[in-house]
Design a protein around this nucleic acid. Structure first.
Length: 467
DNA sequence: TCTGGGGTCCTAGGACCC
DNA sequence: TCTGGGGTCCTAGGACCC
């Protein structure tokens, strides 16, 4: 048996943990740059607010609605969802974290029907196990979760939707008999099935297949012949109760991307380089965090596709390392060189990103037979380790590369200097406090987060005071 | 004015090998 | 005039997921 534990409206629920007054009210969370709606409370969904709706449209369409709006605060969401997983780790025999807000759990095959054998689960049934898990997570973290249980992952996902939708399930829906499976399939629209996206759903609907049940009833040979696609065939098997999506290990990422849209547009190379440099640093950090190195670094830039009045430009190029690396300095250097190749003066850039590919474990790494200075590699490694350690203890970006900093000549730098001149930091003590954070401050300005909540679980400065 | 940021897997087709 | 039968690797593109 499989289970899936899914946080309800995850980001909204995270915000409500420290804003219980927002319970029962419409709440939305926005993407980076306060661009689009990425999470909605049930009340916001009931108002008709669609996922992905641009924020400026939301303001136009709901001018008089009392909607609580938050910028995304991944520091908070990461922390709270980690707490959810730490509870699951203790309560489940095995688990796999599938995404920031979802976690699969596995139950050993040796169980009796409807009865978990694992001694660590001191309960009568899976249903009871799920209801207790929900209670514990709600009480200990403040996060509401829905739990689906079934003989395959696809059926468990379906069950979690029922758990979310119908109060009667008390946050946990169990599919453990064929009758329940058939009943659920008949009530389940085909487009909601895990693994059936917009394209396949449209194709199936055009053939008169409206529900998961309609699809499951088709012949396997028909499915294979019609779609010629192993993924959709597996989905069909899973709906019929055949467990065939392999249990994933905590896999290392095969490619890592860091990209952002800018608040406004960038025209000068120096400012763009500063952003790309920061993305490259993040990629290198992510590589080191999973003990891997990358053989290829790619950079892309593009103009704003919504500004049809402006000339459009898009480019992506990559560079290859002779010896795969996770060195911040090497990756930044390569990314900067690629950027020099693809940057064309005269365009208004809206977005840039760095992608590292050809990711392999950091040991053993095929070395360069003709490398002139093997000592250099070791020095870079020690430097990265020292910087990672300091940034972990003292906060991210305590130490940065020169290329990550603004300079007097780029737009971010000018903006920062102007703010200081305008007395953004009035007293000398404030000034002293602000100085080490100048870089972070500049970046907060470069990417818009006007409705960002505080981080009471990760920053001493944001800790809650009772007044 | 303002429109997100990550990932995975599969397949077809081309280049190349013997 | 007639022109085989097997492979591998890589890439682009399309589908899906959160």
């Amino acid at each position: 048996m499989y289970g899936i534990v899914d946080c309800d409206n995850c980001y909204v629920s995270c915000e409500r943990v420290f804003r219980p007054d927002l319970e029962g009210k419409p709440v939305v969370v926005l993407s980076n740059n306060d661009g689009c709606v990425v999470a909605r409370s049930n009340e916001a969904k009931a108002l008709g607010i669609k996922a992905g709706m641009p924020y400026f449209q939301l303001k136009q369409q709901y001018p008089n609605q009392d909607i609580a709006v938050f910028s995304s605060n991944y520091e908070l969401y990461g922390e709270l969802t980690d707490r959810v997983v730490s509870i699951i780790r203790k309560e489940a025999p095995a688990y796999f974290r599938y995404s920031i807000d979802e976690c699969f759990v596995y139950f050993p095959k040796e169980r009796k029907e409807n009865n978990v054998q694992c001694s660590m689960l001191n309960v009568q049934s899976l249903k009871e196990w799920g209801e207790n898990l929900h209670k514990k997570i709600k009480q200990w973290v403040g996060m509401p979760v829905s739990i689906g249980l079934g003989p395959t992952k696809t059926l468990a996902k379906m069950a979690s939707h029922f758990a979310k939708k119908y109060k009667g399930y008390r946050h946990c829906c169990l599919i453990d008999t064929d009758e329940k499976r058939i009943k659920a399939l008949k009530l389940y629209p085909i487009e909601e099935v895990w693994g059936i996206g917009r394209r396949y759903a449209a194709k199936l609907q055009a053939m008169g297949i409206k529900t998961a049940y309609d699809f499951a009833q088709m012949h396997g040979t028909w499915v294979r012949a019609t779609f010629n696609n192993i993924v959709i065939y597996r989905t069909w098997q899973e709906l019929n109760g055949i467990d065939c999506i392999p249990n994933e290990e905590m896999a290392k990422k095969k490619s890592i991307c860091t990209s952002r849209s800018f608040n406004g547009m960038i025209t000068d190379f120096e400012t763009l380089r500063t952003h790309v440099s920061n993305y490259a640093v993040r990629c290198a950090e992510k590589l080191r965090a999973q003990n891997t190195v990358a053989g290829i670094v790619g950079v892309f830039v593009n103009t704003n596709p919504f500004r049809e009045d402006l000339p459009q430009y898009w480019n992506f190029q990559e560079a290859r390392f002779i010896v795969p690396t996770n060195s911040t300095i090497e990756i930044v250097k390569a990314a900067t060189e690629v950027l020099q190749h693809i940057f064309v003066k005269g365009y208004h850039y809206k977005k840039a990103g760095v992608i590292v590919m050809g990711v392999v474990p950091d040991s053993p790494v095929q070395q360069d037979l003709f490398a002139s200075n093997p000592e250099q590699t070791k020095k870079l490694k020690r430097l990265d380790e020292a910087i990672d350690r300091i940034n972990k203890i003292n906060g991210t970006e305590t130490i940065v590369l020169g290329s990550q900093q603004y300079t007097k000549n780029n737009e971010m730098g000018k903006a920062a200097i102007k703010r200081e001149e305008n007395g953004a930091c009035s007293s000398s003590s404030e000034r002293k406090q602000a100085r080490p954070k100048v870089k972070a401050d500049v970046f907060a300005n470069a990417i818009k987060h006007e409705h960002r909540s505080k981080n009471p679980t990760t920053r001493w400065s944001d800790i809650i005071e009772l007044k």
